[in-house]
């Protein structure tokens, strides 16, 4: 009896506590989730458009019809896991988009739903497009840009290296990124190597990423310190330059090849040294005498 009453007493208390806890967790998110548009713009728009054609990733118009809800809920937070697990659609998409992985998005199911709701709502009826794939009408909606001026490239380089601070105080690219270019010595290794990023993502993709970074760490780093338009243009120009000059610069190899060539080089050097200095005086002329002497200490 006593136990029953205790249980009876604890139940409502627990329920209330649970509700408060869940509410405390969800309420702000729920509020944010309502704004699917805002979420889409901050996390997805860098790589995806809705009806604007393919950017880095596929056009998301009609994606809710093409894929099941479960598939999308699995893919958005952990796309690479799906690729690794061998989901045929995921593998196909990955290959189609130049093996550029989609960053895992730390979104709750509610937030994903909110984004999908926005995508569905704002999407016009799908065009004759299969899986957001090869037949996507090459949009090139961006107006033809004037070629980057040397000043812009130089500014981009300075911004990359931190020679010039970013206007809103964001960290310089070199803190985490590296490119293979003579202009940059010793870039960071915390994030991706960016030599070919322009070639892979194109100007729009890079611009979009710089405008609103989709990657969690980058997002956090540039929160409230977003880049200015001129800075984005300069950095894109610099990365374009790096990408186009890539073939002129030796790739940096820090893998097995480097270790192996280091080992071979060491052996060769030692051989060379022994050739040059092999005929040297070894030890004391008196060594034979010293060897015969008896030590007392």
């Amino acid at each position: 009896m006593r136990r029953n009453t205790a249980t009876l007493l604890t139940l409502p208390v627990g329920a209330v506590a649970l509700a408060i806890a869940i509410g405390g967790l969800l309420l702000p998110r729920a509020a944010a989730a309502q704004d699917g548009e805002k979420l889409f713009k901050t996390t997805c728009a860098a790589c995806h458009s809705i009806g604007g054609g393919r950017l880095v990733g596929p056009d998301l118009q009609g994606v809710t019809e093409r894929r099941t809800k479960e598939w999308l809920h699995q893919f958005i937070p952990a796309s690479q896991k799906m690729v690794k697990d061998g989901d045929p659609t995921a593998v196909e998409l990955f290959a189609e988009y130049n093996n550029i992985p989609m960053p895992d998005q730390p979104l709750t199911a509610v937030q994903v739903d909110a984004i999908l709701g926005y995508v569905q709502a704002s999407g016009a009826p799908p065009a004759a497009d299969g899986g957001g794939g090869e037949a996507a009408p090459e949009p090139t909606p961006a107006p033809v840009e004037p070629p980057a001026t040397p000043e812009q490239i130089q500014l981009g380089q300075d911004l990359f290296t931190g020679e010039t601070r970013l206007a809103h105080g964001g960290p310089s690219c070199i803190s985490c990124h590296d490119v293979t270019n003579d202009a940059i010595i010793g870039g960071g290794i915390l994030a991706r190597e960016l030599t070919t990023v322009f070639g892979r993502l194109g100007g729009n993709g890079v611009r979009a990423i710089l405008g609103s970074p989709p990657f969690p760490v980058m997002q956090a780093a540039y929160e409230d310190r977003s880049l200015e338009e001129a800075e984005v243009v300069a950095l894109v120009s610099f990365l374009e330059q790096v990408s186009s000059e890539q073939s002129n610069h030796l790739p940096r190899d820090t893998g097995l090849k480097l270790a192996a060539s280091g080992a071979v080089g060491t052996v060769l050097l030692l051989l060379l040294y022994s050739l040059i200095w092999g005929n040297r005086k070894r030890g004391s002329v008196n060594q034979a005498i010293y060897d015969r002497q008896v030590d007392s200490i």
Binding site: W277, N279, R280, K281, G283, S284, V285, N286, Q287, Y290
Partner: peptide
């Protein structure tokens, strides 16, 4: 940097 024919203290 290494003079190979130098007398040493033992010499």
């Amino acid at each position: 940097f290494h003079n190979p024919h130098m007398p040493e203290i033992g010499d």
